[in-house]
Design a protein around this nucleic acid. Structure first.
Length: 734
DNA sequence: GACCTGCTGCGGCGTG
């Protein structure tokens, strides 16, 4: 047998990067019959094998990132094993999804078995036998969720130092999914605590989708030293994109009778009835109703139904089944999904990606688009936007959804995406981490807590004074208690929190009913709004009748039914629209060119929106009176719009946030201008004072233990943008 | 209108 020649090197890395890999790893590559490594895989070898720098690796989904990291990591581990140097877990890979851990475990097992490195998958669905095995003989690679690692610190804190004594690498998969979130703050703290327990630094390696600001992501990966992180980016070969935004009109007013989406659905059905496709929708209810509507078309056509819904309230089994149908190439399959399938769960390439309605974020749209375009085939994306027929109000005439979509597509084409908020300290998550460290060590002094959590940068921006205030608030709520010696311990309430498994996650969820059939559980639905016996539900792509509601057991029993069901009333909070998108919307209104990717109807809608924009006079003014209300158009992100509302309430004006605009009832523009002028003259209130006026400031899991003062400070930092709001109000008054 | 993610230890019961 002739071996393929080793993959050749690029100029950047030198010809011998491949030669640095362990021969067992090289052999594995040859056996795969890879003719060459991808550029990013080759570039990653030297810095990762060196082990003395952190690395951020950015490439599109399925860009070979996993191998880019683990070929060199495994090479180092294999060499250690040969020299008999390892006595613990040497690489931890933190991943946001159990499904990703399972995927990765399968992919790594073969390579690692070849070179004798154990790989352990560890999350809530993994049995205790595998976990015990690793605890007894810690070595190799550990694939784990942040929550499971948190549990390890809490329940077996005294063993952590031994398990990770030889830690060399901390890998974070899908790093972008953590940026600017509570879970991200937890992850960062866990990385820091791992290194402290090990007694030395580990090389941190982040895997990410291509992002607008990789330096910011690097700073997240290694706080305070982001500029020393090695950044490797594979922007792809500039894959060709076939894109169409399609416009539709329908009566969307609340009392209107459907018929609306039928025209769009009819076209959609023709696009996705064959092949393998993904239809992204913006809510779980829509995933159900859209899958049902498409299925009805299939039934009329007498073809096997290729449509399956996929969202976070469906059971893991139903979701896995839907993913399997999409992966299976022998029959057409189209999945109708929410953001569940944005991350890198392996479903293979799809022919066409569809976005139904305005995309929630540009970053998400890019991720969704990345699912399409097998090999050298172009990526194909359809966006469907439905606007109000016979528009009357300014909001309807402005065609805001279509214009927002155009703005977002333009920004996508310019490679822009929403910057995550990485500056604001997450006090709710700090509460969790304080309790976790106390459990880990069996108590700690305030100084030790501060050093372990804040001083070295896992919670940048929390100064000693703030930390002391926080500890006092936690003492007042029974979260922590202090002994005479000064030693801090979990308090009564803190113990209760620690003793329940829900403690391990940094994010909060509400209690739900389980939807149960005789064949097993299908998923979950909210307890409120209440559901009655006899109701017809649309769930998992089928209709069901509720036969019994058992509130005590939190279960709803259903049986298959005929007829059209209604999706459960899923609750949710809106995804905020960022500043960049709203500012660009204004540019789109002011522009005159009609993008070629708009179909005829969408082009007409854009023209109508621009005409309304001019007629209302929004090119120069940001204020308009309609039907007894004064409307403000800041063209700024939701955070600024919300702050404008708070500032107006501050001076006694009732203002409401309605999407892109602020509505002020019963105050004519002139009076509003007068009030705004006085506010501008007097100067803005302190953001913390302004936050103090807000009724419900709780946004995160442990916010209600912060106390009023810290909660206001936290809210002011996270939810308000007073300078941004003042800039608009100054414009308005001047 | 309105996403997503995660989870331990132990007691009780049935079976071989």
């Amino acid at each position: 047998m002739t071996r393929p020649s080793p993959p050749s090197g690029s100029e950047k890395t030198g010809p011998d990067a491949f030669a640095l890999l362990h021969r067992g790893v090289q052999r594995w590559v040859w056996e795969r019959r890879w003719t060459s490594l991808r550029p990013i895989q080759e570039q990653a070898i030297r810095p990762i094998i060196g082990g003395d720098t952190d690395v951020l690796l950015a490439a599109a989904t399925a860009g070979g990132k996993t191998e880019a990291v683990f070929l060199p990591v495994c090479s180092v581990l294999a060499r250690d094993a040969e020299h008999g140097e390892s006595t613990g877990i040497q690489a931890v890979c933190l991943s946001p999804l159990k499904a990703l851990i399972n995927d990765q475990h399968t992919r790594l097992t073969d390579l690692c078995a070849r070179i004798g490195i154990p790989v352990t998958a560890w999350h809530g669905d993994i049995g205790v036998i595998q976990k015990d095995r690793l605890r007894e003989e810690p070595s190799g690679i550990l694939l784990i969720t942040p929550e499971s690692l948190e549990a390890m610190f809490v329940t077996r804190g005294s063993t952590v130092a031994r398990l990770f004594a030889d830690l060399r690498y901390i890998v974070v998969d899908e790093l972008h999914a953590f940026l600017g979130t509570a879970r991200g703050a937890q992850l960062r703290s866990l990385m820091h605590r791992l290194e402290r327990a090990a007694g030395h630094r580990a090389a941190r390696i982040g895997l990410s989708a291509t992002l607008a600001d990789l330096r910011a992501a690097a700073e997240f990966l290694r706080p305070g030293e982001g500029d020393r992180v090695t950044i490797l980016e594979d922007r792809g070969a500039g894959k060709q994109l076939l894109l169409q935004v399609r416009g539709y009109v329908a009566d969307l007013r609340e009392d209107a009778e459907g018929g609306a989406c039928d025209a769009a659905t009819g076209h959609l059905y023709q696009v996705v009835r064959t092949g393998h496709n993904m239809v992204f929708v913006n809510s779980r209810a829509e995933a159900e109703s859209c899958a049902a509507a498409l299925s009805e078309f299939a039934e009329q056509d007498r073809i096997p139904n290729p449509f399956t819904p996929h969202h976070g309230s469906l059971s893991a089994e139903l979701r896995a089944h839907a993913e399997q149908r999409l992966k299976n190439r022998s029959a057409p399959a189209t999945i109708v999904c929410t953001a569940t399938l944005e991350l890198g769960i392996d479903v293979g390439w799809v022919d066409t990606v569809v976005q139904l309605g305005t995309p929630p974020t540009v970053a998400g749209l890019r991720q969704r688009l990345g699912r399409s375009g097998r090999g050298s085939a172009p990526a194909k994306l359809y966006v469907y936007i439905t606007e109000q027929s016979l528009p009357e109000t300014p909001v309807e005439r402005l065609r805001l959804d279509l214009v927002q979509t155009v703005a977002m597509v333009e920004l996508l084409l310019r490679r822009w995406c929403e910057p995550p908020d990485l500056e604001t300290p997450h006090l709710s998550t700090l509460v969790q981490q304080i309790l976790s460290v106390l459990a880990q060590h069996g108590g700690a002094s305030a100084l030790r807590l501060y050093r372990e959590l804040c001083a070295d940068g896992a919670f940048p921006g929390v100064d000693e004074q703030t930390f002391a205030d926080l500890l006092r608030a936690l003492g007042a709520h029974g979260i922590v208690t202090q002994e005479r010696s000064g030693l801090l311990l979990p308090g009564k309430v803190g113990e209760t929190l620690l003793n329940h498994y829900s403690f391990y996650s940094a994010f909060d969820t509400v209690e739900e009913y389980t939807i149960a059939t005789v064949d097993g559980d299908m998923g979950t639905m909210p307890i409120s709004p209440a559901v009655d016996t006899g109701a017809l539900l649309a769930f998992g792509g089928r209709s069901w009748q509720v036969v019994e509601v058992k509130p005590a057991e939190r279960r709803v029993l259903v049986v298959p039914a005929r007829g059209e069901g209604v999706p459960p009333g899923f609750a949710g909070v809106p995804v905020p629209v960022s500043d960049g998108v709203r500012q660009h919307m204004r540019e789109v209104y002011l522009g005159t060119d009609v993008p070629r990717y708009l179909d005829e109807a969408a082009a007409i809608l854009l023209e109508e929106g621009r005409m309304a924009f001019r007629e209302i006079g929004l090119a120069d003014l940001h204020v308009h009176e309609y039907d007894g209300e004064t409307l403000l158009f800041p063209w700024r992100g939701d955070r600024v719009v919300e702050t404008i509302c708070h500032l107006l309430r501050w001076v006694g004006i009732k203002a409401a946030h309605a999407g892109a605009l602020v509505t002020v009832p019963d105050v004519p523009p002139e009076r509003l201008r007068g009030a705004v002028s006085r506010l501008v003259k007097a100067g803005p209130p302190d953001p913390v004072d302004l936050a103090g006026m807000v009724a419900d400031k709780r946004r995160h899991k442990y916010d209600h233990y912060l106390g009023e003062e810290l909660l206001s400070r936290s809210y002011a930092a996270q939810a308000l943008d007073v300078p941004g709001a003042m800039r608009f109000l100054e414009q308005l008054s001047g």
